[in-house]
């Protein structure tokens, strides 16, 4: 396998958690996409420094974290942001998770199927429809506060089901 293939294989295996980290730190949208693309480019540039057999996930997440920090700087955002210590803690915790993308994907399919209709519609609106919480509120005739609560409940229900299916605390 040449290096390009090696890289793409590893990248595809880990892209969900890389994207997961970015989405945990940056609003969903063009900025998150840019960071994701930039991260992908940097990972490839630096792939020579990656030691085969070591934890790709930890390495890639660390690079993604720097891209997020770079984004914070270039945007010169006045808004408050998570502290470096917190970012490190999130990255470490995420990298320590076992890699079970296939199992996760299968579990998620099952859990989505078992989700009560109301919850499922919220999830569909939010992810398939790309609706903001406000839009979810409007579409479902809820107040924004109630929409937050309902979305939260739907996510928690999914998470609980995923934990059950994956059989560990590491959903």
């Amino acid at each position: 396998m040449d290096r390009g293939e090696q890289f793409v294989r590893l990248f595809l295996q880990h892209q969900r958690r890389i994207y997961g980290l970015i989405l945990a730190l940056v609003p969903n949208g063009p900025d998150a996409d840019d960071i994701h693309q930039e991260t992908c480019a940097v990972l490839w540039q630096k792939f020579g420094e990656f030691e085969a057999g070591t934890n790709f996930s930890a390495w890639a997440l660390r690079i993604a974290r720097y891209q997020v920090m770079a984004y914070y700087t270039t945007k010169r955002r006045t808004k408050a942001r998570l502290s470096d210590e917190t970012l490190d803690a999130v990255v470490d915790r995420m990298a320590a998770r076992p890699e079970r993308e296939d199992a996760r994907s299968a579990a998620l399919d099952g859990c989505l199927g078992d989700l009560p209709e109301d919850d499922r519609q919220l999830i569909e609106l939010r992810y398939r429809g790309g609706a903001s919480v406000e839009e979810v509120a409007r579409h479902t005739g809820r107040t924004v506060v109630a929409a937050y609560k309902a979305l939260n409940r739907a996510h928690e229900r999914l998470l609980q089901c995923m934990r059950g299916k994956l059989g560990a605390a590491n959903a």
Partner: peptide
């Protein structure tokens, strides 16, 4: 938080 972030990424990949 990590659980939710990973779930969010899974859902985005699957549905969005």
């Amino acid at each position: 938080f990590v659980d939710r972030a990973l779930l969010q990424a899974d859902l985005t990949f699957k549905l969005g």
